[in-house]
Nucleic acid binder design. Structure first.
Length: 452
RNA sequence: CGGGGCGUAGCGCAGUCUGGUAGCGCGUCUGCCUUGGGCGCAGAAGGUCGUCGGUUCGAAUCCGGCCGCCCCGACCA
């Protein structure tokens, strides 16, 4: 084959095929990886296992943060911030904790141009129980200081052997709640309360039905008495751990001497919890709702609710359309939606339709000269491509109605999918046997066994 | 840590087997054209071919070392 022929071959096949994603059925993993890039959610970086979160992805995280932060505050928690570097020695104090995390630590061995002496090194936090307990030990003196309800928004680092965008990255963003209580019962109540907050968030905002339950002994958090999680089922029929809530008992309190004087005047160790969700939720969101055309995001978390695509040729047609588009955009924004107008004349409408579907914009408004004649616009929903011709006066109301419908339908659909692939088992062995068929969301004896 | 793949323009790749002027598509920039499902034409900019060394008159290409990333597995709090 000549070079010329090869180059021609290079051109052919690039055109349409390369614009499409791999299908979920043919290559779920490839579909996911490609989608993350093409929807401009994240990029690989030159740092092993670490990703760059792009604006379209970060906007989803911001919306998650806002909703969760409100829910934490409604349940009495306050935000604080602790250092990213933790004295290595702190981790050593809790035996199970250090055993669990040691292999995944990144350690700071040099600072200020010289090596740090043995015993004075720092680790980059993989989680913050230890350093937070140093502060808690100072803050808690009396039963009157309890409960202490703190949350931190932060990044953490765990040197994972193998990483996947959003689902498992070496550095990730998360929130970690850390609380201290007077009694074991109070701590258990908090553990379950926050698990329920996660469940509510997953269902109401992410439109992602979840199962919650207690993790097995081998899967619990290192240093915890017990760990609970919410588990969501992805389109490939695998469960994904989407959030965890730990009852830490007095394990950390004893190692860091986090004590209080009780109502009876005695020194007692506090009972603690910790709980977290991370940017993994973005991965879960993608795998729950998106399709072969690209990203689908529930309106309550979407970076962009509506794109207005201007159609028409020449200034004569476009000027009027643009005026109307800006007026509509202003109204939509006033009603709380995020809106962009695409007035790029160098791209055809077809290109734009495909592009915004790929990026996960919930609603597309097409507006052209023909519409203006009829005093209407075209609204198309991302998830089901349901197309509506709407009178301009009622466009805003209709857009809101369609977004509400989308939020509800996504939940219903995901729930139906989950239920269609859920089964009851009577023993752990039976569950394992069924799991080998590739149907792997099981709930047995109160605990969820998962693969992710 | 095992197995595989890759490193050439911003992105995706060809060229490497068989050494001889650095290529293609997309994207970007200029101009024209076009606009209801991934338009068209013309022109332009853009690369010490991952890195170090070796062989050679000559290396993206052959040989050796190193670095890095991706995928599969093991692991996964």
């Amino acid at each position: 084959m000549s070079d010329q022929q090869k180059n021609q071959q290079n051109q052919g096949g690039k055109k349409k095929n390369d614009l499409a994603l791999p299908t979920r059925e043919a290559d779920f993993s490839g579909w996911y990886n490609d989608l993350v890039q093409r929807a401009k959610l994240a990029d690989n970086s030159d740092v092993k296992g670490c990703m760059v979160i792009r604006p379209n992805g970060y906007a989803i995280w911001e919306h998650m943060q806002k909703a969760l932060d409100g829910m934490f505050k409604d349940t009495g928690h306050q935000n604080a911030y602790f250092p990213m570097l933790i004295p290595e020695e702190y981790l050593e104090r809790e035996k199970d904790h250090v055993a669990g995390f040691k292999p995944q630590l990144a350690v700071v061995t040099h600072a200020g141009g010289s090596p740090l002496p043995e015993g004075h090194r720092y680790v980059i936090r993989p989680t913050s129980e230890t350093i937070i307990n140093r502060s808690f030990a100072k803050w808690v003196q009396s039963y009157r200081d309890l409960p202490l309800l703190i949350n931190q928004w932060a990044n953490v680092m765990r040197w994972e052997m193998r990483t996947r965008m959003f689902l498992r990255t070496s550095e990730f963003l998360w929130q970690e709640g850390h609380t201290c209580h007077e009694t074991q019962g109070d701590a258990q109540e908090e553990t379950l309360k926050m698990l329920d907050v996660y469940k509510t968030f997953a269902e109401d905002y992410m439109a992602m039905p979840v199962m919650s339950g207690q993790k097995t002994e081998s899967e619990k958090f290192p240093g915890a008495d017990s760990t609970y999680s919410i588990e969501a089922m992805m389109q490939d029929k695998k469960a994904l751990q989407a959030g965890t809530s730990h009852n830490l008992g007095q394990n950390f309190a004893k190692m860091f001497e986090t004590q209080y004087q009780s109502r009876e005047g005695k020194k007692e160790f506090v009972w603690q919890t910790s709980w977290g969700v991370s940017t993994r939720l973005i991965g879960a969101l993608i795998m729950t709702h998106s399709d072969d055309n690209g990203l689908v995001v529930p309106p309550r978390l979407a970076p962009t609710h509506c794109v207005i695509v201007i159609i028409g040729k020449g200034p004569d047609e476009r000027t009027k359309v643009k005026e109307k588009a800006h007026a509509l955009s202003a109204e939509l924004k006033k009603s709380g939606l995020s809106v962009i107008i695409d007035d790029d004349e160098s791209k055809g409408p077809g290109f734009k339709f495909a592009e915004y579907e790929l990026r996960g914009v919930c609603l597309r408004m097409e507006l052209g000269p023909k519409d203006l004649e009829k005093n209407q616009c075209v609204l198309v929903r991302r998830d089901n491509r349901q197309k509506e011709f709407v009178q301009l006066e009622s466009a805003v109301a209709k857009a809101r109605e369609m977004l509400d419908g989308m939020q509800k339908d996504l939940f219903t659909k995901a729930k139906a999918f989950r239920e269609a692939h859920t089964f009851e088992v009577n023993s752990y062995d039976e569950m394992k046997a069924k799991a080998e068929d590739g149907f792997l969301l099981a709930h047995w004896d109160g605990s969820a066994e998962t693969e992710a």
